[in-house]
């Protein structure tokens, strides 16, 4: 039985490890993309523009209220068309095809971004307004206030929430297996089919995910401790 998990010619060890690397790659890229969407979404929600508020509100409501699988199908079947439509706006008429990796990152990033938006918005609002006023009184420019006052503190407040978003993102990448991208779930599915040992391979997949979530939880805890090193504990 363990020969099937080994790294030899009859084993799936190498492929499973490759799948784990792919899962990590998709998760990290999607999480990073989600942070970009989240920052944009949060600034749109906090802006005074009525239109921007509305767009951000629709984005978070729809993406958080619709199953992740449906969003993935939307991008899997319609993502190429969407990207080409955007390309046409910028004057590019050629054919663009997205590979499974970019579709996966785009889909999970879109979902991750909706959750990040709320986390970042809450964190920005948690920064005391007096500090912004004080910075302004010191003559700081808007950009300098953002860089020196708002972002460092927002990061600290947002870390616990972002840790949760990371967990969601990591687990959502399992759904990308429907697009046949060779991440943990897909490799296990193929291995289970060709060896007729589904229990073994799905258990292995579960263990791999558990390993990833445990390690990343510990990493986020460390990051939180580091971010809070200057804060007095109550």
């Amino acid at each position: 039985m363990f020969e099937l998990l080994s790294f030899g010619p009859n084993g799936w060890g190498g492929q499973l490890l490759g799948g784990a690397a792919m899962t990590v790659a998709v998760s990290v890229s999607a999480f990073a993309l989600g942070l970009v969407f989240g920052s944009l979404g949060a600034s749109a929600k906090l802006s005074r523009s009525f239109a921007l508020n509305g767009v951000a509100e629709v984005y978070t409501t729809v993406v958080r209220g619709v199953p992740e699988l449906l969003v993935i199908y939307l991008l899997f079947f319609g993502g190429g068309g969407m990207v080409m439509a955007v390309g046409r706006v910028f004057g590019y008429d050629g054919y663009i095809e997205l590979n499974a990796f970019s579709i996966g990152v785009l889909a999970v990033g879109l979902i991750s971004g909706a959750y990040s938006t709320e986390v970042i918005r809450g964190a920005v609002q948690a920064v005391p307004h007096g500090q912004i006023e004080a910075a302004r009184a010191c003559g700081m420019s808007r950009w300098l206030i953002l860089r020196r006052i708002l972002v460092p503190q927002t990061l600290r407040y947002a870390l616990p929430g972002l840790g949760n978003v990371w967990q969601l993102t990591l687990k959502d990448t399992a759904l990308i297996s429907v697009t046949a991208l060779a991440e943990i779930m897909r490799v296990s599915h193929v291995a289970a089919g060709s060896t007729r040992q589904p229990f073994l391979f799905y258990t292995t997949a579960a263990v791999l995910y558990l390993l990833l979530t445990t390690v990343s939880t510990a990493a986020f805890e460390r990051a939180e401790r580091y971010a809070n090193r200057g804060v007095r504990r109550a």
Partner: peptide, 16 residues
């Protein structure tokens, strides 16, 4: 700590 999809596959394909 594991995705729901793994749990579903483990029960549906794995148990049999």
């Amino acid at each position: 700590g594991t995705p729901l999809l793994v749990q579903i596959f483990l029960i549906y394909y794995g148990m049999g």
